[in-house]
Design a protein around this nucleic acid. Structure first.
Lengths: 99, 99
DNA sequence: ATCATCGGAAAGTCTAGACTTACCGTTCGT
DNA sequence: ACGAACGGTAAGTCTAGACTTTCCGATGAT
């Protein structure tokens, strides 16, 4: 997930889709990259369960995936809170030497 | 920030530091990369305000930066909630054609 | 004062992956 | 049925950046 959002172009796509569902060509039109590049990014975002697609005729409409979004958010919170908790505990206990 | 945590090695360093402050050499000892590589990653994490360092003699002890952490978390929440809000609104309004 | 340790900086290598063009397969319209 | 639009895949290029070794300045110990 953090890998998926670690790329600037993918973040742009993510934010574009936040404004509403769009087809691949429509997304590419708003970005300085080619359509196949967008296709490849969408694949990554889809594997991360951040977006989903539905076929409408010959078009493929992509949108944020609420279910996956919730799962991903849960993962991030866990990652983050785990770090914070461990850090808080480390602050309490003075670092002990190993003589 | 998402760029900083977009790298697996940096996430490892981040989680190591969550368990408590460590010197550069100590971090490198727990990772399959060289010490200068760790140094470079720490530089990125520091610029993202995820970690801070204090000089102790000739050693440099790195730790998570609570203040920066809070700021970074705030940025992420804003990024995320903005996306969710826009998405929720997009669901409400049926996509309008432009004839 | 000298020597050892620690870690940042510089310079160079090498690979992941972001991007391109070209090419199908599929679906819709006429 | 045929042509056009859409989008995924393949194959190849090219650059960012992750990593290495080498070097040097700074600090602490004897």
């Amino acid at each position: 997930m953090l890998d998926a959002l670690g790329d600037a172009t993918r973040r742009s796509i993510f934010e574009l889709l936040a404004a509403g569902p769009r087809s691949v060509a429509e997304i590419a039109a708003d970005l300085p990259v080619s359509r196949p590049a967008v296709s490849q990014h969408l694949k990554v975002l889809k594997e991360a369960r951040l977006v989903s697609s539905t076929a409408v005729g010959t078009r493929r409409v992509y949108a944020l995936d609420p279910q996956g979004l919730a799962a991903v958010r849960g993962y991030f919170d866990q990652f983050w809170n785990h770090a914070l908790a461990a850090f808080a505990q480390a602050v309490e206990q003075p670092p002990e030497e190993t003589p």
